[in-house]
Design a protein around this nucleic acid. Structure first.
Length: 104
DNA sequence: GCTTTGACACTAA
DNA sequence: CTTAGTGCCAAAG
């Protein structure tokens, strides 16, 4: 039995901690892992970890923009609205209000 | 084991 | 505000 958890897997783990109606950013996520692999974090999502298991749609850019999504950024925006997350007319999200604070 | 690929971040102009 | 360029890291080829 080995863990050898890949960077991606660790991202999924943190992602799973994000409650509904809350979001996180690629930067925060990477920072929580003690890395600056902002890009790698996104990679983990794009590789479709488990859309049913990991709330990939709750991860946005550090500047508040929606960012991308494997199923389309538009779809992602819908999901976020479903979560009760308001999106500014400029297509941005107020991080100061929805950003999930990690325990670490 | 080096090269390519990205759902990003940051700075400068 | 936008555009362009550079830096960053891990996974896949």
């Amino acid at each position: 039995m080995k863990k050898t958890l890949t960077f991606d897997q660790r991202c999924h783990a943190l992602l799973a901690q994000i409650p509904k109606g809350r979001v996180s950013t690629y930067r925060e996520l990477a920072h929580a892992l003690g890395s600056k692999a902002y890009r790698a974090v996104g990679q983990a999502m794009n590789r479709n970890p488990n859309l049913m298991k990991v709330p990939c749609h709750r991860v946005i850019k550090s500047n508040g923009e929606i960012g991308g999504y494997a199923l389309g950024a538009d779809k992602k925006r819908e999901l976020l609205l479903e979560e009760g997350i308001q999106v500014e007319t400029n297509g941005r999200i107020r991080l100061s209000k929805y950003l999930h604070p990690y325990s670490t």
